[in-house]
Amino acid sequence: MELKSDLKILVVDDMGTMRKIIKKMLVQLGFNNIHEAQDGSEAWPMIKTHLAEGAPFEFVISDWNMPGMTGIDLLKNVRATAEIHGLPFLMVTAEAEQSNVVTAVQSGVNNYVVKPFSAQTLKEKINTIFSNKK
């Protein structure tokens, strides 16, 4: 499926390397409106500010383990906020243990991707999220 190229995406990861990799993969996939945050505590005010300005983020890709605010806590904040409770959210994790997956699903994640992953895998995860939203 084709998603609009200016889909407003927020990439959240405490490791600059992973933010850069995800951003480059997204550019490869044709996206051009990509913003970054270093962890949940930087991302959450950004999400609220952009919402208040009338140009909310349309998709969040967030790491799980981060200092400050974890990806799960960021997700919980999003799901608890009426105006953005349905914001598509992809969780990136280094660990694929069953308990992690259950926690992510219970917290309302739309999909998750386990590191290491390729641009093709990221594309498939994104397509699944937005196909299910239709």
């Binding site: 994790t93 280094a94 660990e95 694929a96 243990e97 386990v114 590191k115 290491p116």
Partner: peptide, 8 residues
């Protein structure tokens, strides 16, 4: 990080 997470 990725090696450890994947090995886990």
């Amino acid at each position: 990080n990725m090696i450890m997470g994947s090995a886990k």
